[in-house]
Write a protein that binds this DNA or RNA. Structure first.
Lengths: 162, 162
DNA sequence: CCTTTAGTTGAAGTGCACTTCAACTAAAGG
DNA sequence: CCTTTAGTTGAAGTGCACTTCAACTAAAGG
């Protein structure tokens, strides 16, 4: 039973290019043993780490943050399902927030584009960073026509909030 | 009545850095007249274009696609609220899809990370591209333990789908 | 009028997440 | 055993969305 994978095998099984796997290793996200001939051999558990990395990226987490999360896994033993559940739970609120903001955006897209969003600085839609992914200062919905600009006095938006 | 804005004014009102505004102009996203001394003067309607750009970026649209959308606006006249509504509507389905995928991801995050997602290639969570933003080949939910890998035979996931 | 503040340009730099390349070596197959 | 396929490295390149820099000019304020 070959309980280690070559980089090509890991690549095929994970759907991640070998060059990306080497890159993850350089960043300390995954690890590999070496054969006598200096080739990488991955423990099967690395497959799960790669899966976690890709999933986390979908949540909008940077590789640096993912590395930090992976670093919190226990050393010495293969992480248990509980360990993985803990990490996944730590992304949950990020994901919830992201969904909340995108939903708000969807529900106000017409009105916000219609109004020209003069108050871009305070608009939900102007949440800087990675597509609504940040934890920054809370996003707010746009205010109704904050200036009396005739050029932009279109649809009076009724979507204000706190 | 000063019906044009300097780059500094547009920057403050839009919350977008002057360097970014110049960059948008180079890409053909916005335009400016010039003073005798070669300084940019923006028509007030440009503010709405900038707002549209930022909002679209939140939806996950690239500047190139945004430019294409803006190019579809009527030339010669200031776009009407209907024009903007049309553009906003064109993002709606992208946004819906994005929300759908993120919601699926949220609802399956535990299970998927728990199972190790051996079938990453076919997992919703492995939707390549910009954080679930693509229109690629439809994403699928993960299959239950597609290989009989003991290392990863954790929680039997019940979240399969067509 | 002079100083300060705001603007101009093209070129180069930044950060992220990789990929590509050249010049190799190792392992597997017939 | 030889060829093919798969692996190795460090350095450089890619694409996106900008920002920074140097060396200037323009406009505004007192």
């Amino acid at each position: 039973m070959p309980d280690s994978l070559t980089i090509g095998e890991l690549s095929v099984r994970s759907g991640v290019a070998p060059s990306a796997l080497r890159y993850y290793e350089r960043l300390g996200l995954i690890r590999a043993d070496r054969t006598g001939g200096n080739q990488r051999r991955y423990a099967r558990a690395e497959l799960r780490r790669v899966a976690f990395i890709r999933i986390s990226q979908q949540v909008g987490i940077s590789l640096d943050e993912i590395r930090a999360a992976l670093d919190s896994l226990p050393e010495g033993r293969t992480p248990s399902p509980q360990d993985w559940a803990r990490l996944s739970a730590s992304w949950q609120s990020r994901l919830d927030e992201k969904i909340r903001l995108l939903t708000e955006l969807r529900d106000n897209l017409d009105g916000c584009i219609g109004c020209g969003c003069l108050s871009l600085q305070r608009c939900v839609l102007n949440n800087p960073g990675d597509a609504l992914g940040g934890e920054g200062p809370g996003a707010r919905l746009m205010l109704p026509r904050p200036t009396g600009d005739p050029t932009l006095a279109g649809t009076p938006s009724g979507v204000t909030r706190g």
